[in-house]
């Protein structure tokens, strides 16, 4: 069975799995104790996920004093102010560029590497996998610290190595464009192990007999990738796209450690802007909450658009 890529709000269970017949179960598990089993999860989610949505909404309709001790109701002022502010649109733009920079590259790299890894070899495959998978356990904070060293203009390695091939490396963290590229590289790197594993799982779920049949028909290696692997991999690609979009929109640790949102606001994405407005300097919680709402809406819209756009092309086995 394939790892199916269904994202549909109404039906989230994996369709191939049959639940035991309710009629029989009903008699045995006479339900009310179910609520006790659910209670801890329910309580935590209610207090720390659903309730905050409501209070975020309330905060976003108020101006909140720097010490959190006063609130002035201002209605939609925070929202209108954001929509009219070039800084807000800049953070949206940074978030979008960030997504465009991380998601396609991350997925292409992952699939390419997974294709190489899926070719059976006699020995050493454990080593290949270990070296390639390892970023999966690296935190965003550590990734930030490691890349901060690599990009350092004095003791960093990247520009030093670039100089071997005759390239005079840029100011990675103080040039607007390269700072964004620098953070994108760090995030793609941290995400790579995860993506390769997902891609490999997808590849290995493809039935070998399809390839054998294609070989018999004289398909070239590229043709087999193009006409068998990629279509059969589409549910996995779909999943990778969704999860990577969400992860890229939520990038925080690398930005905090590498650039602090700078230079200027070149790497201030929405999340970072929320953080700055809420917790840096005298805070503006109302404005921050309004931005958080916008971010949430963008994340949901993207999930939906992707589902609509990709969903039609996705191949289900």
């Amino acid at each position: 069975m394939a790892v199916t890529g269904q994202l549909d709000g109404s039906e989230l269970s994996v369709p191939t799995v049959e639940a035991p017949k309710p009629g029989l179960m009903k008699r045995w598990f006479k339900g009310s104790s179910a609520y006790l089993y659910l209670a801890p999860t329910f309580i935590i989610l209610a207090i720390f996920v659903y309730f905050p949505i409501v209070s975020s909404l309330r905060l976003s309709l108020n101006r909140v004093a720097p010490f959190g001790n006063q609130e002035i109701f201002v209605g939609a002022e925070n929202y209108t102010r954001l929509l009219g502010s070039s800084e807000f649109w800049n953070t949206v733009k940074v978030s979008m560029w960030f997504m465009v920079g991380t998601v396609p590259i991350g997925i292409v790299l992952a699939v390419a590497i997974a294709l190489l890894l899926s070719y059976p070899v006699r020995r050493l495959s454990w080593l290949h996998r270990m070296l390639i998978f390892v970023p999966v356990v690296i935190s965003s904070a550590i990734a930030g610290v490691l890349f901060r060293l690599l990009y350092n203009p004095v003791v960093g390695f990247i520009n030093h190595w670039l100089s071997f091939i005759g390239i005079d490396g840029p100011n990675w963290l103080t040039d607007r464009t390269f700072a964004l590229v620098a953070v994108i590289i760090a995030v793609v790197w941290r995400q790579l192990g995860f993506n390769v594993i997902i891609a490999l799982a997808g590849l290995q779920s493809i039935d070998d007999t399809l390839y054998e049949a294609a070989k018999v028909d004289g398909a070239s290696a590229w043709q087999r990738v193009r006409y068998i692997t990629l279509p059969m991999l589409s549910p996995t690609l779909f999943f990778l796209a969704v999860i990577n979009v969400i992860i890229s929109l939520q990038a925080f640790g690398e930005i905090n450690i590498l650039t602090d949102g700078g230079p200027g606001q070149a790497t201030t994405n929405l999340v970072y802007s929320v953080f700055i407005d809420a917790f840096v300097g005298t805070s503006f919680r109302g404005l921050a909450s309004a931005q958080a709402f916008m971010l949430a809406i963008i994340i949901m819209v993207f999930s939906f658009l992707q589902f609509r756009g990709l969903g039609k092309k996705v191949h289900y086995q």
């Binding site: 207090i47 996920v49 969400i246 919680r285 958080a292 971010l295 949901m300």
Partner: peptide, 19 residues
Amino acid sequence: VIGSLFVPFELIFIPNFIT
């Protein structure tokens, strides 16, 4: 339960901080 998967942490961390 499943709906909570779609709530980004960024939306809720300010109120959670207050809570």
